[in-house]
Design a binder for these strands. Sequence first.
DNA 1: CGCTTTTGACCGGCGC
DNA 2: GCGCCGGTCAAAAGCG
Length: 339
Amino acid sequence: MEFTSLVDTSLDLNFRPLRVPDGVPKQEVESNFIGLGIDHTPVKDEASDLLEELNRVSAENKKLTEMLTVMCQNYNALRNQVTEYMSKHNTTATTTSADDHSAGSKKRKSENNEILKSIQGESSSSDEDNSCTKKPREEHIKTKTTRVYVRTEPSDTSLIVKDGYQWRKYGQKVTRDSPSPRAYFKCSFAPTCLVKKKVQRSVEDQSILVATYEGEHNHSHPSKMDAVTTSPSSRLNGKSTLGVTASVPCQTLNSTEPKNMLQIEDKKVASSTSTSTVGGHKRKSLSGGADNNNHQNRPEFQHFLIEQMATSLTKDPSFQAALAAAISGKFLPNNHTDK
DNA sequence: CGCTTTTGACCGGCGC
DNA sequence: GCGCCGGTCAAAAGCG
């Protein structure tokens, strides 16, 4: 992505509420009413003003929705660039995800193949994404696998990753890959939702939870449907909070603790990415965008990048709402109904 | 009482 | 064919 698009990402958020949208000047609207022969009694004037205000707000709402969509896309691009930038500034970025799994003594062949596929692109189900293949299996359900790394408190021994969705734990196993058990979750928000989640502690850093999401939610994010009340499962543990909607094209981060989110590794787009390890944790770097290295290495750009990210977050209404909820919950624990 | 979590049993795939 | 292993099931326990 181009550098200029980064500017658009957050600057568009600084919308002016009183701005007349869609290039319809306010006075033109007024003249339209005049042209329709609307009587200019005070009551009618007030009604027309309200109508005009309603139209303006509706149009503005529509435009904001579009802006939010663009912002999501730009945010993803920005995040990828940051990830790439960080990976290039870490000389320890040498190992791949396959190395990550090689902690276990003996590796099963299929597992290695799966890892290899995940690096190269995707498992057989998403090989159809390559336009060069013409297999009739394109109607198969594409199981989208997303991996999320979440840093938790060292004292937190639970395997709960709070992402806003409702999960029901249906199993726990101790695998050979890691001494810590692996927890299996199913999405319990919608009975028809078949999304599964595996949560396991990182081998290198026990304070990092590795959540692997399989499938896509066929429902909207619960936090979007009810931003105030939290799900029962999400109330259980508020230590590692993040929001990831892997099912939507743009991964929306409604995180109240953005620093907890270390990485989102989306296997579906892994064909254009390569995984590497930064500081013991895997990082994703895009294969493209290397021509931006020069200005990305400059401190000005770093500062600008940080400012842009901060601006994007602080201007984001959802982030503000989440932050307010988090703060009110932190300082006023008895203020909100907990049950 | 209903939902969630726990946990041992079971199943199927894979390697030898 | 056997054993290992990851994933899933389901009954029991826990919890609000």
